[in-house]
Computed example of a mutant assay.
Amino acid sequence: MTSSDPLAPFRWLHDGDSLLDDIFTVAFFRGLDPSEVVRRFSRGEDHGQESDFVGLMDQATEFSIKTGGGYGGGTVGVLQVGEWSVAIEPIGWMATLHDVLAELSRDCEVLAITRHGYAEDSLGYAIDGTIVTAYHPLHCPHLRYGSEPDRLNGFMRELGMAVDSLDDENDRDDEYDWEDEDERYESDYVSALPNAFALAAKLTQVRFIPEILDRAMLVGPVAYR
């Protein structure tokens, strides 16, 4: 029986006890193969070594421990899914930093999502060095910025995401129900990250599900700090 919940395939990503823990970034690259993606993350120093997800996590964990955690996991694993390369940064957030995302997207297209359990989740979409649209999935999907902030609005509306200002609703103080607001916040909190990955799937046709982590990948260093 097929679930009617479009977020069901991605709800595992919200769980801090998931395979990726509570800090990670996933970036989808169109137009680059995995070796070239690793080369870009390493700033031309590495084309990657074949490994599996356990090896990727071991390297990222070791790097994080050695550096005190302030530079993320320092490691990326990349695999091919259809016409997209999928890059996984355990314990990392570099691919959604705007200067890094812009550089990674030269001559290609990149959508990157960061889950950060101790800071703020982020989504950024860039094409050939330009941030097209970006936002913070939990609090501000309606506060987008970039050269074309409304570029993905059609997909967002299909997922029931708020793409317009909430000011009109929040200005109705006489009718404001704080209990309803608390319930809505909890619902938004649980759905924010799955919504971001559902949006990525709309654009890329790649569903980032746990089985992807079973595939062989190329693993290399992240040179950005």
Score class of each variant (00 low, 15 high):
Thr2Trp: 09
Ser4His: 02
Leu7Asn: 03
Phe10Met: 01
Phe10Gly: 01
His14Gly: 08
Asp17Arg: 15
Phe24Tyr: 15
Val26Met: 00
Arg30Asn: 14
Glu36Pro: 04
Glu36Tyr: 05
Val37Gln: 03
Val37Ile: 06
Val38Gly: 09
Val38Asp: 12
Arg40Ile: 07
Phe41Lys: 06
Ser42Met: 02
Glu45Phe: 11
Ser51Asp: 14
Asp52Val: 10
Phe53His: 09
Met57Gln: 13
Gln59Asp: 15
Lys66Gln: 12
Gly68Asp: 05
Gly70Trp: 15
Gly77Thr: 08
Leu79Thr: 04
Glu83Val: 07
Ser85Trp: 03
Ile91Glu: 10
Ala95Asn: 05
His98Tyr: 10
Asp99Gln: 01
Leu101Ile: 05
Ala102His: 10
Leu104Pro: 10
Ser105Gly: 01
Glu109Lys: 13
Val110Phe: 00
Ile113Phe: 05
Thr114Asn: 03
His116Ser: 10
His116Lys: 02
Gly117Phe: 07
Asp121Leu: 02
Asp121Ala: 11
Asp121Phe: 02
Ser122Met: 13
Ser122Tyr: 12
Ala126Glu: 07
Asp128Tyr: 01
Asp128Arg: 04
Gly129Ser: 08
Val132Thr: 12
Thr133Leu: 10
Ala134Thr: 14
Leu138Ser: 02
Leu138Cys: 01
Tyr145Ala: 05
Gly146Asp: 07
Arg151Gly: 12
Arg151Ala: 15
Leu152Asp: 10
Leu152Lys: 01
Asn153Phe: 06
Asn153Trp: 09
Gly154Tyr: 08
Gly154Val: 07
Met156His: 00
Arg157Trp: 00
Leu159Pro: 07
Leu159Glu: 08
Val163Met: 06
Val163Gly: 03
Val163Asn: 01
Asp167Val: 02
Asp168Gly: 08
Asp171Phe: 15
Arg172Gln: 13
Asp173His: 13
Asp174Thr: 12
Asp174Arg: 07
Asp177Arg: 01
Glu179Gln: 10
Glu179Trp: 02
Asp180Ala: 13
Glu183Lys: 10
Arg184Cys: 04
Tyr185Lys: 13
Tyr185Ile: 10
Tyr185Phe: 14
Glu186Phe: 12
Glu186Trp: 05
Ser187Gln: 15
Asp188Ile: 08
Ala192Ile: 01
Asn195Ile: 01
Phe197Arg: 04
Leu199Gly: 01
Leu199Lys: 10
Ala201Arg: 06
Gln205His: 13
Pro210Leu: 00
Glu211Phe: 05
Glu211Thr: 14
Leu213Met: 07
Arg215Lys: 15
Arg215Pro: 07
Val219Ser: 03
Val219Thr: 14
Gly220His: 00
Pro221Met: 00
Val222Leu: 04
Tyr224Ser: 03
Arg225Cys: 12
Arg225Gln: 13
